[in-house]
Design a protein around this nucleic acid. Structure first.
Lengths: 316, 316
DNA sequence: GCTTCAATGCCCCACCCGGGGCAGGTCACG
DNA sequence: CGTGACCTGCCCCGGGTGGGGCATTGAAGC
C-alpha cells in the first residue's frame, strides 16, 4: 500500500507536466474529477485540524503522525525529545515490537550521540525538515555510526521534522523507509518539505500547552480557582505557619480543630490569628473572609501568585 | 484586486474541467508551471504556520485574517467573543473608522440580540462555518433586524467561522462583502468551507493559551460568578429580608453597619441572622462563609438559580 | 552583640456572638 | 378562625473572639 502511487504515464497528465505527486488527483482514464481534487486538500486540512484539536493532549502525536501519513507514507514513526541536558526520550512511536530494540534501546545505549540528526538538532538547527542523505552529504556509509548501528536497523532512508523549543530543546518527528517500500522519491520529499512549517509550529505549540498556568487556569472550574486561592491568598505577607493557620480558617476550621490538626496549643493558634489580622490589616474573621472573597477577582492576574498582591495595588 | 481571478477561458484548462478557483495556477498561455502550483499550496501552509506560531499572542488574529485573505478576499474583518453571560466583545477588527460605529457601537446597543449569527452561536451551533443566506433561509429582508440595523451597514453578503469554546462561549470570525466587491461566489464558499476545520480549531487553541484565557474568559467569569453568588446564595431557603441581611454579611458588613443600611435595629439584624443560621443549618458566621465558598463550585450547574440547591442535593 | 522575625504558649479583660426565650402586628392559606 | 411565616425588637447568658501583655528559643542579618 505504501507504493500506491501509479507509476504508468498518463498521456494528458504528462503533456501538462503537472507534478507527479498530484497524479492521484486524476482517474486512470486521464480525466480529472473536481471532487477528488477538493477531497485531497480537504483531507490535509481535516487531518491537520484533528491534530490542532488534540494540542496539549496525549492524542496529539498520533494525530500528527496520521496527518503526515495521509500525504506521504513512511515506516517506524517516532517522536523524540532531544533534551539539552538529558538523554533523548521517546515521546511517541509506532514501531513494531520486533524492531523496537534496535530503534530505541540500542540507539539509546550510545549510538544516538553519533546520529547526524541528533547532532544537527543539538547544534542550532535552522531548518524544520532534514533528509539523511543531505546532512551526511552522501557519506553516511563511511561513518562509524553506520557500521556500528545504522546498517543493522534495516532502513534505507530517513527524514525528520524538527521543532525547536524553549531552552534549546528539540522535538523531532522521525520518518523512515524500509527496503520493501523503497526510498523516498523526490516528489515525496517535495511534499514533506511543503508541510514542514505547520508541523513544526504545531509541535512547538503542543509543548507550550503543558505550561502550568494554562493547565490550571483552563482545565478546572471555579472550585480549582478557589482551591488555588486557599493556598495562595496572603502568601506574600505571611509566614509559613501563619499560612497554615489561615488556610484552615478559610476552609472553615475553628480554633480548636485547627490546633488539633496542626498539633499545637489553642493559644498558639490564637496568637497566629492575631498576627494574621495585623499583617492583612483586618480586625475580625468577618473582615478576613470578606477580603478573601473580594480577592477572588484578582486570581487571574495573579496567575498562581498571591492575589492580594494585585488586590492591594490596583493601579498596576 | 479582489476580482483578480482571470475570467477568460483557458482552452486546455476547460477541457480538463479543473475547478475555476484553481485557474490562477496556470499561466495565460495555458501551460501550467509546477512552481506556481506548489507556491499556492505553500502559501496556505506558510500563512497557516504564521498563525500557529502566533497562538496565544496579540498577533494571532491578524495572522489568521491574513491567512484567510490569502485564499478568499473579504471586507470588514472582525473577531467577536460571544460570552454566555456577558455582552459580545470585539477581540480584533480591521474595520475602517467610517464604518466602525455601525459595525460595532450600534450593533452592541441592542441589534446583536437579533443577529442570526449571534443567535446561532448561542444555541448549540454544530457547524464551524455559516453563510448568512443559509441560516436566514433567504428571509433576512423580512426581519426587524434587517430593517432596523442590517440594511444600514451597507454590506451585501456575510459569512462566519465559528469556534466553540469551553463554557458555551463562542468566537466568531466575521467576513463581509461590500457592494463594490460583490457577494461571495460559490467557489469562494467552497474554499472557505474547506478551511473551516483548521481555522476553528486554531481559534479554540488560541483561547486556551493562558494570556487570552485570563484576559477574556477566566477573570470575567470569576467576577460574574462571585457577584451572582452574592445574589443567589440561599435564595431558595430564605425570606426576602433574610436575603438582604445575608447579602450584606457576605459582602463584609458587620451587624451594626447592616442595621444602619437597612434602617432597622441591631437586634433585628441579630434575629435575622439566627433565622439564617437555622435555615442553612450552620452555627456560626465561619460556617456560613465556608458554606458560601464551597457552594461556588455549584454555580455552573445552578445556572443562575440558588447554588445551595445543587450543593445540598449532590446526587442529582 | 543586638535586633528582628518566627514559632510556641500563658494570662487578663472587654465585648460581641449565638443559643435561648419572649413579644406584637400583618398577611396568606386551609 | 387558627396557624404559620414574616418583620420587628427586647432580654438573658455562656462562651469564644480579639485586643493587649508577657515569655523562651532559634535563626538570620547588620
Amino acid at each position: 500500500m505504501l507504493a500506491a502511487k501509479p507509476k504508468r504515464a498518463v498521456p494528458v497528465f504528462d503533456k501538462l507536466r503537472v507534478p507527479a505527486h498530484y497524479a492521484f488527483l486524476y482517474a486512470a482514464s486521464g480525466k480529472p474529477t473536481a471532487m477528488t481534487d477538493i477531497a485531497q486538500l480537504s483531507k490535509w486540512n481535516r487531518d491537520l485540524s484533528q491534530a490542532i484539536s488534540a494540542l496539549g493532549t496525549d492524542a496529539f502525536f498520533p494525530a500528527l503522525i496520521a496527518a503526515i501519513q495521509g500525504q506521504v507514507r513512511f515506516d517506524y514513526p517516532q517522536v523524540w525529545l532531544y533534551h539539552k541536558d538529558l538523554p533523548p526520550q521517546v515521546l511517541y512511536h509506532e514501531i513494531p515490537d520486533n524492531a523496537l530494540a534496535s530503534q530505541v534501546d540500542t540507539y539509546l545505549d550510545g549510538p544516538y550521540r553519533e546520529d547526524p540528526f541528533y547532532q544537527t538538532s543539538m547544534n542550532q538547527p535552522r531548518s524544520k525538515f532534514y533528509r539523511l542523505s543531505r546532512i551526511t552529504a552522501g557519506k553516511l556509509r563511511e561513518t562509524q555510526y553506520y557500521r556500528d548501528y545504522y546498517a543493522d536497523t534495516g532502513t534505507v532512508d530517513e527524514a525528520i521534522y524538527l521543532s525547536r523549543l524553549r531552552g534549546s530543546n528539540v522535538i523531532n518527528v522521525c520518518m523512515m523507509r524500509l527496503p520493501r517500500h523503497g526510498t523516498f522519491t523526490e516528489q515525496d520529499y517535495e511534499t514533506l518539505y511543503l508541510l514542514a512549517e505547520p508541523i513544526s509550529e504545531l509541535i512547538k505549540s503542543h509543548s507550550e500547552h503543558d505550561d502550568f498556568a494554562v493547565t490550571h487556569l483552563i482545565q478546572p472550574g471555579i472550585d480549582h480557582q478557589v482551591d488555588l486561592a486557599f493556598r495562595t491568598f496572603g502568601a506574600s505577607l505571611l509566614s509559613p505557619r501563619e499560612k497554615d493557620v489561615l488556610e484552615l480558617m478559610l476552609r472553615g476550621y475553628g480554633t480548636d480543630t485547627s490546633a488539633d490538626r496542626l498539633g499545637i496549643a489553642l493559644e498558639t493558634v490564637r496568637r497566629h490569628r492575631k498576627s494574621i489580622y495585623r499583617k492583612l490589616d483586618v480586625s475580625s474573621q468577618t473582615d478576613l473572609f470578606s477580603l478573601f472573597i473580594n480577592s477572588l477577582t484578582c486570581l487571574g492576574q495573579a496567575a498562581g501568585d498571591d492575589p492580594l498582591r494585585i488586590y492591594m495595588a490596583p493601579s498596576q
